[in-house]
Amino acid sequence: MDESTSLDIEALKMTEEQYVLEAQSGHLQQPRCDAVDTVGLYGWRKRFLYFFLSLLLVIMMVNLALTVWIVKVMHFTVDGMGNLQVNGEGIRLEGISEFLLPLYVKEIQSRRASPLVVRSKRNVTINARNDQGQLTGQLTVGPDSVEAQCQRFEVRTRDGGKVLFSVDEKKISIGTDTVRVTGSDGGVFGHSVETPHIQADASQDLKLESPTRTLTMEAPRGVEVTAARGKLKATCRKDLELQSTEGEIFLDANAIRLGSFLPLGVYSPSSDAASQKQTVYELCICPNGKLYLSPAGSRSSCYSTSNVCLWN
């Protein structure tokens, strides 16, 4: 009984020792790895990363240098850019400015006591539009002409109170006290002219002429032709008519002279020899209104049977 028990104990010890040895041998022996993975950039990838970072740094430096150069050349400040200043009243430009595209502004004003000059190699066009963008007025200054397109064109005084000149589709109005025409040929009008007063300059003659047609002066309350310090001359190629429908024609002067162009009326053959020595004549009028001269005598020599009256 004791021997068998001792054998079992010995066998158990041997079994425990083998287990401990196997366990220790299992901890000591580690599995072998044939392939080892490394972490990081090596070779051409590393060189490419360094090149890209260097290129990016160079671009940033060039960009910064260009920015500093542009700021210096364009004179950027807190108030604006160079000659362009922005303030509460608007934008102020100093010197010559050039615009390549249309400019939309509300008001353009020059500096005090300085002119405003707008230059262009072709023409200068100023447009005015309404809220819908439709063109309501246009002013074009070209090399050969100045054109204004609008419903009404006005020229006012400096204070803007009086209209000096206005044009619309129906009429032209001139609001000045005097309209002066300085051309050598005077003023040429294609149609009628309505005016209350026509006056020549001092020491100048006033001439109203119609070269190929008739000259008519009409007024509802009379026409007055006055030459204060000169003579009044009316010349025509055909008939000169002075007509009054309701009143009379009144000639008031110290002397009324009729030139030698009036015909001499002869009413009898015996009077031809006497008329050659005659120096005094009387003015006669035919029933049709024609005037002629007749030798003056002790009584009137005007007869309706005169040769002048019979010819007409």
Rank of each mutant, 00 (worst) to 15 (best):
G80Q: 09
A200T: 11
L206K: 08
T305P: 00
R229W: 07
Q199N: 12
V181M: 15
L283S: 04
R158T: 09
G297L: 14
L264R: 01
N288D: 04
S275E: 14
R111I: 03
F153V: 09
D37S: 11
F261D: 01
L208D: 00
Y303K: 05
W69E: 13
Y19P: 01
V86M: 03
V280G: 08
S210K: 03
G183S: 15
A148F: 05
V280Q: 11
C33R: 14
Q138F: 11
D34Q: 10
N288A: 05
T140I: 01
I59S: 04
K46N: 07
E94L: 15
T182K: 15
L103C: 14
R221H: 14
A35C: 11
S203M: 12
G82L: 04
K106F: 08
Q132V: 13
A228T: 08
E282Q: 04
I285A: 07
E10A: 08
F99A: 08
T38S: 14
S210H: 00
A65E: 05
D185V: 12
A255L: 13
F250T: 07
W311E: 02
D2S: 11
L103V: 11
E218H: 15
C309G: 06
K290Y: 09
R158S: 12
E17R: 05
Q29W: 11
T195M: 02
W69R: 11
R112W: 14
S173L: 14
E282N: 02
G142T: 01
L93Y: 08
E10F: 14
P102M: 05
I172S: 02
G133N: 04
L264W: 03
Q199E: 13
Q278E: 03
R47C: 15
R45A: 10
V193T: 01
V117N: 10
E3C: 12
V20W: 06
R156T: 08
V68G: 10
T178P: 06
A227F: 07
P211C: 00
I108M: 07
E98L: 09
E3P: 07
V167C: 07
P287C: 09
V73Q: 05
F261V: 02
S97K: 14
V266D: 02
A228S: 12
E10T: 09
I174H: 09
D131V: 14
W311P: 00
E209A: 10
G230M: 00
T15C: 04
S260I: 01
A23P: 00
S298M: 13
F153C: 14
S210W: 00
S114D: 15
E248R: 00
T245S: 15
P269T: 07
Q199R: 13
C286Y: 01
T216L: 09
K121G: 08
W311T: 02
F99I: 12
A23C: 10
V118T: 05
R229K: 12
M1C: 10
N288F: 03
K171H: 15
D205A: 12
Y267D: 02
G230R: 02
S268I: 00
L232Q: 09
G297Q: 13
S301Q: 06
D177L: 15
V58K: 06
P263Q: 07
A23T: 08
K106D: 11
D239H: 13
G297C: 12
C150N: 08
A200R: 13
C286T: 01
T77D: 08
Q132A: 15
Q278H: 07
A273Y: 12
T216P: 04
F52S: 09
V155L: 01
Q132N: 13
N123C: 06
